[in-house]
Design a protein around this nucleic acid. Structure first.
Length: 155
RNA sequence: UCCGUUGGACAGGCGACCGCGUCCGGGUUCACCCGGCCGAGGAAAGUCCGAACACGACAGGACACGGUGGUGGGCAACACCCACCGGCCUCGCGCAGGCCAGGGACAGUGCCACAGAAAACAGACCGCCUCCGCCUCCGGGCGGCGGCAAGGGUGAAAAGGUGCGGUAAGAGCGCACCGCCCGACCGGUGACGGUCGGGGCACGGCAAACCCCACCGCGUGCAAGCGCAAGCAGCCUCGCCCGUCCGGCCUCGCCGGCGGGCCCCCGCGGUCCGCGGGGCAAGGGCGGGUCGCGUGCUGGAGGCCGUCGGCGACGGCGGCCCGAGAGAAAUGGUCGCCACGGCCCUCAAGGGCCGAACAGGAUUCGGCUUACGUCCAACCGCGUGG
């Protein structure tokens, strides 16, 4: 408890449920938004999540297919990316659902995942801000009560 | 000695910081915070067997399909385990070690390549032999009617094997021993073994070919299933029945319209054999079934120790212990030190670098199989090297 004074940044590295994408609906919406960025072996889908979450925190979702290796390898990659997200979260743009689809590769170092994740998130942030005409960005929208009509736009 | 086989143990340890999941206690009861406990494996794997559990189905018989296959035991059960029997193989030959899906080949069908004369109610190529005829250089040769299956040769396999007798030559033709078949007796729970007697021997192999026999077996699997709240869906009227409705007719009924109903229970499996009974007015057709939450969900054929019984698998009794229950799915990251292995530098003390396998729960157990690092013990008679 004396540590609290020494480490005021303690809470910045937590990784509770609040920072994870949950439920099939969040994943489907992230795919449907079609905003993505490839960084090395990572394919990152990004989508503002204000309609789903009040707090405006950035959340992480992971998809590691069987092609990436056996169960141990897949868990290894997931844990590394999760750790990278945990330690870089304060530097990422806020209010996005980031869905990371992992392509087959040999596991990288933690530092590399942090760099890839940060670059992808920043690129996606620029992408959403440069298209204000599209109503799917929708910071303006009132909280959508009808959740099915989040993306009424045409492709 | 190495590899190997069998059995056993471990699956790096400690500390600091940043994090994660269930549960418990508290806090403005929770997508949060604080504290605490616990938090992957020997294979968690492949999903190949066996069960528990759940739902659905199930009278009986026949058929079909699948599985098992020496005997006895263990087990909840098994295709697993133990012991034994039998067969085959190996040696340094001992009650040694290793291997074996190890029922049936006079129920039927099928196959047996190549080689070989002949390969399954089997055969005569080279051969062997009596007799007859001819020839002769007197050793024999050629031809013919027959007899034979010993020897050669082929093959994975060729009308039991060896020896003696026997014969023109031969042949279980006869005899002895071994083998085989049949029978009796004895021993064993049994597979089977032993002894005695008889038979001259007729009966090839393959059933992980179809098949036959005996025994066993319903199907689907926790995304099983159960519950809750929300949402929602029933419709048609060719057929059948009812009507205190309407109309018509040659009037105890029939026809047309309208309205309503068309289900439940018991005995019946995938197909067939046969549908039957009750309630009783009848009892046709078409469609729809999504998502969320809770539960199932972990204490069990559970582990460890001791003791007793048993050759053993295992069982009885006593004591102690509680060790994951997620749901986009936790057990991770960074650093330091100490251990282990390898390499390099150095005379040395020491220092530096690298490595640490196979692999992670998802209903739970019992097995099998496969993957794999280190250490210990025993065996070394199979295989490799010295």
């Amino acid at each position: 408890m004396s540590d609290d004074a020494v480490q005021p940044s303690r809470g910045d590295f937590r990784f509770g449920r609040r920072f994870r994408m949950r439920g099939a609906a969040a994943f489907d919406l992230a795919y449907a938004a079609r905003a993505r960025r490839r960084e090395g072996p990572l394919l990152v889908y990004g989508r503002p999540n204000r309609d789903l979450v009040d707090a405006g925190e950035t959340r992480l979702g992971l998809s590691v297919s069987r092609r990436c290796g056996n169960s141990v390898t897949r868990h290894r990659v997931k844990r590394l990316i999760r750790e990278a997200f945990r330690t870089t979260r304060s530097e990422l743009p806020k209010g996005y659902d980031l869905l990371v689809v992992v392509h087959p590769h040999a596991p990288l170092r933690l530092e590399d995942y942090r760099r890839l994740l940060r670059r992808a998130a920043e690129a996606l942030d620029r992408q959403w801000n440069s298209t204000p005409d599209c109503d799917r960005t929708s910071p303006i929208d009132p909280p959508n009560s009808a959740r099915g009509e989040v993306s009424p736009q045409s492709d």
